[in-house]
């Protein structure tokens, strides 16, 4: 078990400042406090080499969880082990084992060129010369960083910087990688490159990866296993297929056009109970849950009617996730 979080909980205590000068003066003496339950009793286990998509709506507690796993924040309650270490109490050893990218913030040195930043990291992590060279060459090449490697970080575009961040987080061959919105603000091509890179790192190096993103295509392409967090609590933990099965009821559909006008569309009894029919003239959409297979449905339909333009739709991940987030 590479990551093991049990009953992980984080409350933020916020001092509420009153409005205006009077409020400020008041808050000097008696501050009103508000507690935000950002993460509540989260259990998360990850095996070596797993890639988990950690998703949830804004403010769900994703970044907070990652900060606790990476040793930035102390949990209010519960326990965390990353590679067997308590990330906060053994912060320095833990830092050697993990890499982290926070899409919203930079980990790099603002005024230094990318190459020098890497050199600094080499010294900081004591990276052996051969590993360092191999990694830098590979990352520079794969993420196409040559064109901007000598520019200061502050002079990079968002997409260039993100590539540099991801490369920087992996130079020291970490066992675990935390990616908090690594594809935020990237153009289509860079996004694809980053996804490929993450996939490759996970596959070839066996790096255990926890990924948060609001781009569901990232999830679809990268994460077999999905953990959904909402209001600080884990609402789902399982494979993509299971997620679809659980939340996609009524999200499958078969659409077609009738070749002749018919008054009513009738289905065999076993199927009818699981289907709803939408109709607009000759265009028909039959929605069904996952207990019905689309092929059975189509066979039943062609036996009775003459159809064209048959279109089968599975659940869209957006719909599924929206369903989960609504809970």
């Amino acid at each position: 078990m590479v990551i093991q979080a049990t009953g992980l909980t984080k409350d933020y205590v916020i001092n509420l400042k009153g409005k205006g000068l009077k409020g400020m003066a008041k808050s000097l003496f008696k501050s009103e406090k508000k507690t935000v339950h950002a993460v509540q009793d989260v259990n998360l286990q990850m095996d070596e080499g797993e890639l988990v998509g950690y998703i949830g709506p804004n403010g769900a507690g994703k970044s907070t969880t990652i900060k606790m796993l990476s040793g930035i924040l102390a949990p209010t309650a519960g326990s965390v082990r990353v590679c067997g270490l308590d990330p906060q109490k053994r912060r320095i050893q833990n830092a050697m084992n993990i890499g982290a990218v926070f899409g919203q913030k930079t980990q790099l040195w603002w005024d230094l060129p990318v190459r020098e930043t890497f050199e600094l990291l080499r010294r900081m992590y004591n990276i052996p010369a051969d590993r360092y060279k191999k990694n830098v060459d590979e990352f520079m090449d794969f993420l196409d960083m040559g064109p901007f490697a000598d520019q200061a970080v502050r002079q990079l575009s968002l997409g260039q910087r993100m590539r540099a961040e991801i490369a920087a987080s992996l130079l020291h061959d970490p066992k675990v990688l935390f990616l908090d919105e690594p594809t935020i603000g990237l153009d289509v091509n860079v996004k694809v490159a980053v996804r490929e890179f993450v996939k490759k790192i996970n596959k070839e190096r066996g790096v255990t990866i926890l990924l948060t993103t609001h781009d569901l295509q990232d999830i679809e392409e990268l994460a077999k296993r999905i953990v959904v967090i909402n209001h600080g609590q884990v609402g789902f933990d399982g494979s993509q297929a299971e997620l679809a099965r659980k939340y996609a009821d009524g999200k499958h559909s078969v659409s077609f056009t009738l070749q002749q006008e018919v008054s009513d569309i009738l289905l065999p009894e076993g199927l009818a109970a699981h289907c709803t029919i939408q109709r607009e003239g000759r265009n028909v959409k039959v929605m069904h849950d996952s207990s019905v297979s689309s092929s059975d449905l189509i066979v039943a339909l062609v036996q009775r009617y003459r159809l064209t333009d048959i279109d089968i739709e599975g659940p869209q991940i957006e719909d599924v996730v929206m369903e989960v987030y609504r809970e």
């Binding site: 900060k67 912060r91 320095i92 830092a95 050697m96 926070f102 913030k105 980990q107 900081m124």
Partner: peptide
């Protein structure tokens, strides 16, 4: 501004 995060992620005091 939360950039202390960065210092905590490094393997240094």
């Amino acid at each position: 501004d939360g950039s202390f995060d960065r210092l905590l992620l490094r393997p240094m005091g």
